[in-house]
Amino acid sequence: MFQGNIIEKCKKNDRKAQLQLYNSYCEGMFHVAYRFLKSVEDAEDAMQESFIKAFKKLHQYHGDVTFGAWLKKIVINHCIDQLKYEKKQLVSLEDQLLEPIQHEEEVISESLVIEIKEHILEAIDKLSDKYRLVVLLYLVEGYDHKEISEILDITETASRTKLLRGKRKLQEYLKVYSNGIG
């Protein structure tokens, strides 16, 4: 209920409430934008522009979904539009450390884990934009095919097909790499 009161105040152009809502979501929305864009500056700009758009269209928010989910969709759509416009590459995975993997009773060294992660990132970067976008939205952001179809303006079948083809391409790229290890 607390958040609902803030949103109602924001709809009435209450600057303190807008700042409070911004402060609650800015860090998370920055990370969403950063996963799509390769620079801190672009992610900050995308986040700021998304908040401006959200505040202008706040009258369209009716509470059907959480405010965070509604805002996240605005951020993702803005990033996708920016990528289409600038034809930039996507960052396909978050910069998080992979946990050491147990392999035949041995722990794989951290340097090997880092090397594997780099190869996964390279493989994802090799995907064409049409596959990379669906892979990113599905595997990293956790959207389902219905949501992806709405975001990218494609059919659910096309979303499933692009995800399947993107995964196959990733497997091909990674198979070449895995044959070189071990």
Score class of each variant (00 low, 15 high):
G63I: 15
F67D: 08
A69P: 06
W70A: 06
W70Y: 11
L71W: 03
K73F: 00
V75S: 01
V75Y: 03
V75E: 09
V75A: 06
I76N: 06
N77G: 04
H78K: 04
I80A: 09
I80D: 01
D81E: 03
E86M: 13
E86P: 10
K87I: 03
K87G: 00
K88C: 01
Q89G: 01
Q89K: 12
Q89V: 12
E94Q: 13
E94W: 11
L97C: 02
Q102Y: 06
H103T: 11
E105M: 10
E106A: 05
I108D: 06
S111D: 14
S111H: 11
L112E: 12
L112K: 14
L112G: 02
I116C: 00
E118G: 11
H119D: 11
I120P: 08
I124R: 05
I124A: 00
S128C: 06
S128P: 06
K130S: 01
K130V: 12
L133P: 07
L133T: 12
L133I: 11
L133F: 02
V134S: 00
L136Y: 02
L136C: 09
Y138S: 03
Y138Q: 02
Y138T: 05
Y143K: 06
Y143D: 05
K146T: 10
E147T: 10
S149C: 11
E150T: 01
E150G: 04
E150S: 05
I151W: 00
I151G: 09
L152E: 06
L152G: 09
L152K: 03
D153A: 10
D153G: 05
D153Y: 11
T155G: 04
T155D: 02
T157D: 10
T157Q: 11
A158I: 12
S159M: 08
R160P: 02
